[in-house]
Design a binder for these strands. Structure first.
Lengths: 139, 139
DNA sequence: CCTTGACCTTCCAGTCATTGGAAGCCTTAT
DNA sequence: ATAAGGCTTCCAATGACTGGAAGGTCAAGG
């Protein structure tokens, strides 16, 4: 199997496979006499594992850990679970951050007429730093 | 006002102010005889605007548009609203993506015993590509 | 007057996970 | 023989910063 075949079989771009090899995420593939990389089905399985993990948003660093655990017969499921839950915590933090942004902007956009006039609460918020909301009376 | 003062006043790092200038997000500041950048309060206002917009997750590209609209007296609020809603749409798309990841992983982690044994549904999912979920019977 | 320390300047490099391109070699088919 | 397509390496770019090195400038204190 050449790198192109492995790419098709795993769903990971050939370019990306080389990159993963270069950063040490996957071990260096074998080579033909001409220098072409050669892949076995077990190496394709690793690539598929990596791809699925990326799809779930794991960082390369954590995927390295997961691959290590995957190939370690004496692993404990607790280790795997901890890595996964650490990632979930990061995802939730990011979601909360984006949620706050979206809610604020949605609120502002709702208050904006969206017509041909220049007056706009969105710009007013950006101008004032969002410190004083239009709905809260001054103390 | 030197760049350090402007940084304190705006909340934007001096290094970042230079970066914003280098990419053309803000116009080049005036200079003293010695070459130090000089800022007026109106320039600090622009920096604050940019900072607030970044806090809301706007890209530099969109902030450029927003600053332009902000300083355009003949703008229509509709234009501003469209930029904001485009961004909200992107935020929501990203949130949905992260939500899906988090939910999948939370589900898998829940199914994982998290003890000293090696058996782990999380690794099984990564291995199999998440294609066949444990709870769905085969057709 | 000189030094110290805090500022300012520019430029270069690295982050993260890719993606793109250029230049050149190898294999297969016509 | 040649053309197409795949493979190789290396370099550069993405977005939005952040860090550091090397050197110039300014105000205060000895």
């Amino acid at each position: 199997m050449t790198i192109g075949d492995a790419a098709k079989a795993s769903g990971v771009n050939a370019k990306l496979i080389r990159y993963y090899e270069s950063i040490g995420l996957i071990p260096a593939a074998g080579r033909t006499a001409a220098g072409y990389r050669v892949y076995s089905s077990s190496e394709v399985n690793v690539l598929r594992f990596v791809k699925r993990a990326r799809t779930l948003g794991f960082s390369i660093e954590r995927i390295q850990i997961l691959v290590g655990l995957w190939q370690d017969r004496s692993r404990s499921s607790a280790e795997v679970k901890r890595v996964a839950l650490d990632h979930v915590a990061e995802l939730e933090a990011k979601i909360a951050e984006l949620r706050a942004m979206s809610d604020t902007l949605t609120h502002l956009a709702h208050a904006c007429h969206g017509d041909e006039r220049p007056d706009c609460p969105i710009l007013r918020d950006l101008e004032e730093g969002g410190g004083n909301c239009c709905h809260e009376p001054p103390p």
